[in-house]
Amino acid sequence: MSAPPDVRPACSDETQTVASVLTDAFVDEAGLNYWLRQGDAKTAVRRRFFNAAVGDVIHKERELWLAQADGAPAGAAIWLKPGDHAFAFTPLQQLLTTPLFISIAGFEGMKRAQELGAALNSHHPKQKHAHLVFLGVAPSAQGRGVGSAILKQTLAPLDARGVTAYLECTAERNAALYKRHGFEVTGEFDFPGLHFWTMTRAPRPV
């Protein structure tokens, strides 16, 4: 990578690029693999999930970010604005999305997802906060500062507005990255074969 990554909001015609980056970045992510179908279907269902995630499945007003390096997609992120909640479905939305979740998780996986979602929801800060739902770096660009570049670019406007940031992660190395950018561990919990850190970042003075 010869130049620093260029991080910016994704354009309307780049949603599938964001989905592709996240699909590749999250191949070994424990939280998703806990409830998504595994085996031969693993890649296809992960792709189907992120194709839906960049639409309105997470939230209709989700914010998509894209990092490019040397002209190629290098990383991506999905943020929610303060007051917005991931997967907060109305009864109608829940009905409409059920076929998708059955196809990518199965009935047992849906049960795991619901239990995991309840645990995650209980760890959110009480005050309004922006939620970093997903941040992923393309395998070919990992270890080159792309994740840090995305965090710097996306946290700066939150600091300017005095907004708290929140995220969850399942890898100790990722928790260490977030700590370097001002996040603090505010909760931890376990599921079978899975450990979660929940992390909160107070806005920094501009």
Results as ranks from 00 to 15, higher is better:
2 S>N: 11
2 S>C: 01
3 A>N: 07
5 P>L: 02
9 P>K: 10
13 D>W: 04
14 E>L: 02
18 V>H: 02
18 V>Q: 04
18 V>N: 03
21 V>E: 03
25 A>G: 05
25 A>E: 07
26 F>N: 01
29 E>P: 03
34 Y>T: 03
34 Y>Q: 03
35 W>R: 00
39 G>D: 14
41 A>C: 03
41 A>M: 08
43 T>A: 12
44 A>C: 08
46 R>K: 14
48 R>T: 13
50 F>Y: 15
53 A>P: 14
53 A>K: 13
55 G>E: 13
57 V>F: 13
62 R>A: 15
62 R>F: 05
62 R>M: 09
63 E>P: 09
63 E>W: 02
64 L>K: 13
65 W>A: 10
65 W>R: 09
65 W>E: 07
66 L>I: 10
68 Q>L: 10
71 G>C: 14
74 A>F: 07
77 A>Q: 14
80 L>S: 13
82 P>S: 14
82 P>M: 15
82 P>T: 12
84 D>T: 05
85 H>T: 15
87 F>T: 08
88 A>M: 02
90 T>K: 02
91 P>C: 07
94 Q>P: 01
94 Q>S: 13
94 Q>I: 00
95 L>Q: 09
97 T>W: 05
98 T>Q: 05
98 T>C: 00
102 I>K: 03
104 I>Q: 04
104 I>K: 01
105 A>M: 12
106 G>I: 05
106 G>C: 05
109 G>S: 12
114 Q>K: 15
118 A>E: 13
118 A>L: 10
120 L>I: 09
121 N>I: 00
122 S>V: 00
122 S>N: 06
125 P>Y: 01
125 P>T: 06
126 K>Y: 02
127 Q>C: 04
128 K>N: 08
131 H>I: 00
132 L>W: 07
133 V>I: 08
134 F>W: 11
134 F>M: 08
137 V>I: 10
138 A>Q: 10
138 A>D: 15
139 P>N: 01
139 P>G: 01
140 S>F: 01
143 G>P: 15
143 G>R: 03
145 G>D: 12
150 I>H: 02
150 I>F: 04
150 I>A: 08
152 K>I: 07
154 T>A: 05
158 L>W: 03
168 E>T: 05
169 C>T: 15
172 E>M: 04
173 R>V: 11
173 R>W: 12
174 N>K: 06
174 N>H: 13
174 N>Q: 10
176 A>R: 14
177 L>D: 04
180 R>M: 08
182 G>C: 05
186 T>Y: 00
188 E>W: 01
189 F>H: 04
190 D>L: 06
192 P>E: 08
192 P>W: 05
196 F>E: 07
199 M>Q: 11
200 T>P: 00
201 R>G: 07
202 A>V: 02
204 R>M: 11
206 V>W: 03
